[in-house]
Design a protein around this nucleic acid. Sequence first.
DNA 1: CGCTAGATGGGAATGATTTTCAGATCAATG
DNA 2: CATTGATCTGAAAATCATTCCCATCTAGCG
Lengths: 152, 152
Amino acid sequence: MERNRPAAPTPLADVTLIGRHTQQRAVVVKAFIRAEGFVGAQALHNRLAADGSPVGLSTVYRTLTALADAGRADMVRDTSGERLFRYRPGPDHRHYLLCTECGLSRPVDSGPVEDWADTIARTSGFANVRHTVELSEVCPDCGRQRATAEHR
Amino acid sequence: MERNRPAAPTPLADVTLIGRHTQQRAVVVKAFIRAEGFVGAQALHNRLAADGSPVGLSTVYRTLTALADAGRADMVRDTSGERLFRYRPGPDHRHYLLCTECGLSRPVDSGPVEDWADTIARTSGFANVRHTVELSEVCPDCGRQRATAEHR
DNA sequence: CGCTAGATGGGAATGATTTTCAGATCAATG
DNA sequence: CATTGATCTGAAAATCATTCCCATCTAGCG
């Protein structure tokens, strides 16, 4: 693994996008990418500790917000107010369906909302419109389980 | 002030929607409605104190979340994570443009997003899709002021 | 190799929200 | 009108995610 290709799917390339390259950052980014879905800073921190790569909580926070600022991560808020981050491989701005039971996330076609947001931005007189869209629900799997549970 | 009218456009009707009718609740709801826009629980609490109607912060929180649960208020989150509430006179679900500088809010036509959300709900296999949309920016007034400031 | 701006970590600080619980209030009833 | 049990209130303490502080490290340039 990890041949020395030029600069292609190397996830660590992201580390260099956010300041100095340090071991901790590399570890955090790697784990973050491996997570494949929305993760909270604390959850990621725990995961790292469990994997035997203790990294300070502050560092996890710093790294995640830096990635978000650099546009390499999406950020949403839990119903409880907790921040969840998701690694974004490409440059596209996306929206996701997020299961409130198991955390499973799935990207959805957001073309229509983007268009709508653009229209609002153009017609409102407001400057610099940014949007956040959150769709939350229960995914097919959890829905099935829940239905079963309710039958007992 | 406070004649004894029957029970017409009395905003206090809302108070009865959320449990027992008490003076504190009446005061909070009245101030909340008067606010006409998004307010934080703490801000409302301060405003009440300034108006000489001291009500416990806990009570303000309880009242606002109760209204939100009853569908009489919309709730969004500040960039800082703080919860902001807005009184909702009718039964309609709405979305707003929220100025990040002065807090001014303005409802926007959300038909397209609603349709989009419905489509997603129908095609995703996910059950019970709910959506949150936040548009934030700088309103015309603040934008003008900011431009001026930058010129000095 | 030596230097220094930038990075780390862990413990304390912050700040919004929630909980606790004793005492005050409501509203239905006798 | 008085009683009474359920509900509500509020001050203070508890929570909890996130940020700040700062003494200590370490990339990475010269």
